[in-house]
């Protein structure tokens, strides 16, 4: 009896396997999506070159600070001259 049940179970499972292999077919994704994603992904390395941007930002900030110091120094200079007089 149990043997028979197992037999039925096995045939059922093999039927299920057949159905799965017949019905589960790969889908074709949207080619526009695939191409767009690829382009975006490959652009990542160029986007990731942020070190130059950071460098230029740092340069700009330090230049600004330097200009500020010079400006303060220039403003302070006439006062010193007056004080000296």
């Amino acid at each position: 009896m149990t043997e028979k049940k197992e037999e039925i179970g096995l045939t059922n499972l093999s039927q299920l396997e057949n159905t799965l292999s017949k019905v589960l077919k790969p889908v074709k994704p949207d080619t526009v999506f695939i191409d767009t994603l690829k382009t975006k992904l490959i652009q990542i390395p160029t986007i990731m070159v942020e070190s130059t941007k950071k460098g230029s930002k740092f340069l700009l900030v330090s230049l600004g600070v330097l200009v500020g110091i010079v400006f303060v120094w220039l403003l302070g200079n006439p006062k010193r001259k007056k004080g000296n007089r």
Partner: peptide
């Protein structure tokens, strides 16, 4: 090599 299978 992988996009279609991952998508599926």
């Amino acid at each position: 090599q992988n996009v279609n299978r991952i998508y599926n």
